[in-house]
Design a binder for these strands. Structure first.
Lengths: 137, 137
DNA sequence: CTTATTTAAGTATTCAATCACCAAAATTAC
DNA sequence: GTAATTTTGGTGATTGAATACTTAAATAAG
């Protein structure tokens, strides 16, 4: 069973956690609550959230009633920025055969892989965190 | 640096090798020649070709002047079939969050991942090996 | 028959992603 | 101030995919 798209659990955790936190601006959401909501390992969720704190998208408070809160402006934060915070900058998927060595004039995939990657990037760029907030704040 | 599309070197070797072999129906192409043409490890190329032989797409002859030859009908063999011979059946990339646990009514990615996967599959299905032969036989 | 060539098959290594755990630091609540 | 809670940061295990290598078997050519 093969997946065509590289959508890791790490990115999925990042996107869902950010959306969940953006929808509860009044409560401090902690790892336990979030990992339960999205049914993921709390260790993995903790790691991802720590990275998002380091990158400035989230803030955190330790101790009882601690947790994470949104620091970024949801109207300006795109899904692309979250995606790339976890995975690194998206690069166009080119055919692994070096073009100098490819025995064909044009790529076997034509420009499909380029098109598809752009389509994905454009989607992520067009969506902000605010688009996923039930009540706007 | 993140790649959105899962296009492994293994699949790339399979597609390019099949096309190369289909274009030289009179010569026995061996691992050394093919791996040089596509600038890949001969060990890896050998592995992939062995699998394609087992699956019946190629035949082989050992010994001096041995090599691989096309067994499949290039007019009926699609790129999809080659792709799935190596990677396994393509499945729709769904969000790793179990739908029962997803806190959102609709997927964060909308149906983009479904659309993109179908687009890729449709492309691979629409191309036969014959489309890549310079002179038809 | 001997040697060289080539595929076949099995094994090993590498790498990334995920997951699990622990000790330390911070903070809150009592 | 003490105890409980929660993030932080580091480490290591595990898994699976991808890639690299090695030896064995087959075959052709001389």
């Amino acid at each position: 069973m093969a997946k065509v798209l590289n959508i890791t659990e790490a990115v999925t955790i990042a996107l869902h956690s950010m959306i969940i936190i953006a929808n509860k601006p009044d409560e401090q959401m902690n790892v336990k609550v979030i990992s339960t909501l999205i049914d993921s390992s709390k260790f993995h969720v903790a790691k991802i959230l720590q990275k998002l704190v380091k990158d400035g998208y989230l803030g955190s408070h330790r101790g009882p009633s601690g947790g994470f809160y949104l620091k970024a402006n949801p109207n300006e934060l795109t899904l692309l920025e979250i995606y790339e915070a976890i995975e690194g900058k998206i690069i166009i998927a080119e055919c692994p055969i070096d073009h100098d060595h490819c025995p064909f004039g044009t790529c076997v995939f034509d420009d499909l892989t380029v098109q598809m990657t752009k389509q994905f990037v454009d989607f992520l760029k067009s969506r902000t965190l605010a688009d996923y907030q039930k009540q706007k704040h």
